[in-house]
Amino acid sequence: MDRTWNNKAWFLVLPVLLLVAFSAIIPLMTVVNYSVQDTFGNNVFFWVGVEWFEELLHSPRFWQALLRNLIFSAIILAIQIPLGVFIALNMPRRGWGVSVCLVLMALPLLIPWNVVGTIWQVFGRVDIGLLGYTLARLGINYNYVQDPLAAWVTVIVMDIWHWTSLVVLLCYAGLVSIPDAYFQAAKIDGASRWSVFRYIQLPKMNRVLLIAVLLRFMDSFMIYTEPFVVTGGGPGNETTFLSIDLVKMAIGQFDVGPAAAMSLVYFLIVLLVCWVFYTVMTNYGEESGR
C-alpha cells in the first residue's frame, strides 16, 4: 500500500523536543562538562580530563555498589515475575471479585515511594513495628539496622510488596485478552491445567511479561527512595545501591566531578539494558505479528 509522506508533521514533534532539551539534554550536557572538571564551588572549574572516570573504574566502591544493584535486580525479578504470574492466574475473571482484586492490587502502586519506605521502616522496628516485634517475640534475631541480611530481606520484601502488583496487573491484562475459544478448544482436547498454561496462557502473556521484566529491571536498577528511607544504605554500605552512592557522592560529599563521571557510566549501563530490552520487545512484536 502506498503511504502519503508529509514531512511537515515533524514540526509537531518540536514542542516535545524543546521540553526534552530543557529537562534532559541540557542537564546531560552539564553533567558531561562536570565529569571532566573539578570545582570548589562558585562556578570555578579546573580541567582534570578523564581522571574521574579512571578513578571510578578502579574504585571498589563503585563495583561493589553495581554488584549489589545487579544482585538486587536479579532477586526481585526472580521473585516478582513468577509471583505476579501466579497471582494473575488465580484472580477472578468475572463477577464482583474482579473490581475488589484490581483495587487491592493497585493500592500499593498508588503509595508514594518515600511513604512506602517509612511504612516499612516503622513496620520492621523491633520496639514499635508489628513485623519486628512479632519476629522478636518468635525468637528470631531480626534487626535491619545492624544485620546486613535483615536489611536485605527488608528491602527485598518491601520492593516485592510495592511492585509485584504491577506485574500482576500487566499479566492479568494479558490473560483477559485471550479469547475464550482457546480455552474451549483446550477443554475439548482434554488439556491439563499445566498444558493450558504452558501452551496458551504463557505464549499469550509473553509480550506483557517482557514489558514487566523491562519495567521492573529498570525500576529496581535505579531504586533510591525506599532503601534510602529504610536503611540509609546501611548497615555500613550493605544496601548502598548505585543511586544511593551517587547521591552520597554528589550531595553528601559535594564531589560533583566524580559524581558526574559515575552518572555517565550509570547512564550508559541503563541505556545499554534499555536498548537490549527494546530490541527484544520490538523484534518479538514483529515476529509474532507476521
Binding site: 550536557m29 552539564t30 558531561v32 562538562n33 572538571q37 562556578n43
Partner: peptide, 12 residues
Amino acid sequence: WMAWTLPTATFF
C-alpha cells in the same frame, strides 16, 4: 554554571 570546555563542546 554549565562549565563548558572546548573538548566537551567539540564532543557535542
